[in-house]
């Protein structure tokens, strides 16, 4: 048990994966986790998760209104201090719109809301959320989004490659990032990226929905490794 570690899960109006995330952190990982309303103070947390959902009903575009919530100023401060911060799905959209991660998330190429299990390849294992995984490792996780096409201009893409910030790719069963394995038209099959300091990470797939074998059609619990990495990162920081 790691109950001395405490994770904050931010709740915006319209978040809907907040309780699942808290459940996984408490019941599967065994750490303390609390919900934090987006107007409240972020105090005493070792890590922060911005969960999935539809903050403000995706008005204007997903994530933009939540990006102006009072709590985001505190998230930005914690990001500078090196606290691990993950944005899952809608949380990724919020991190992008808040300027904590570069690029844009556009409506899926097929224009449909896509809800299915995909394969992810881990491109870098030196981030706050992949450090117990090896480079090239494959995870099965579900996606559920309408605006998940990662888009960036050439300058941003070049920087992402040069600085090893592309952390997750959509791949096929053989681990190759093919067009067929790319569910939403994301540039270069990008499913998740991190900041330069590697403590802020956003991804479209849902690790909290893939953290228990009983919930996976493949009997996998790869999402667990995402959260375990965060705990490991916090432990090393504390030690």
């Amino acid at each position: 048990m790691n109950t001395e570690i405490k994770i904050g899960v931010i709740r915006f109006p319209g978040s809907n994966c907040d309780l699942d995330t808290v459940y996984v952190l408490r019941n599967v990982l065994g750490v303390s986790a609390d919900l934090v309303w987006h107007k409240d103070k972020l105090e005493g947390f070792d890590g922060i998760i911005l969960p999935g959902g539809f903050a403000y009903g995706d008005a204007l575009r997903a994530g933009i209104i939540a990006a102006y919530s009072p709590v985001i100023l505190e998230v930005k401060t914690l990001a500078r201090e090196g606290v691990p911060i993950a944005g899952i799905c809608n949380g990724f959209q919020v991190l992008i719109e808040a300027g904590l991660l570069p690029g844009a998330l556009l409506p899926n190429d097929g224009l449909k809301f896509i809800c299915k299990w995909i394969n992810l390849r881990i491109e870098h294992s030196d981030t706050a959320f992949t450090n117990i995984e090896k480079k090239g490792g494959l995870w099965k996780l579900p996606i559920a989004h309408g605006e998940g096409k990662y888009f960036a201009d050439k300058t941003i893409l070049k920087d992402l490659y040069e600085n090893n910030q592309i952390v997750f790719l959509y791949v096929n069963d053989e681990g190759e990032p093919t067009e067929d394995a790319n569910p939403n038209g994301s540039f270069d099959s990008i499913a998740g990226i991190c900041n330069l300091e590697r403590n802020v990470l956003g991804l479209m797939p849902h690790p909290e929905r893939g953290s228990e074998k009983t919930l996976s059609p493949f009997r996998t619990d790869h999402g667990n490794r995402f959260f375990q990495s965060m705990i490991e990162y916090i432990r090393k920081g504390v030690a």
Binding site: I64, A67, E97, A104, L106, A152, D153, I156
Partner: peptide, 10 residues
Amino acid sequence: ELRIYNPVAH
């Protein structure tokens, strides 16, 4: 100021 558009994509 309020990023009514995302300058990366729009």
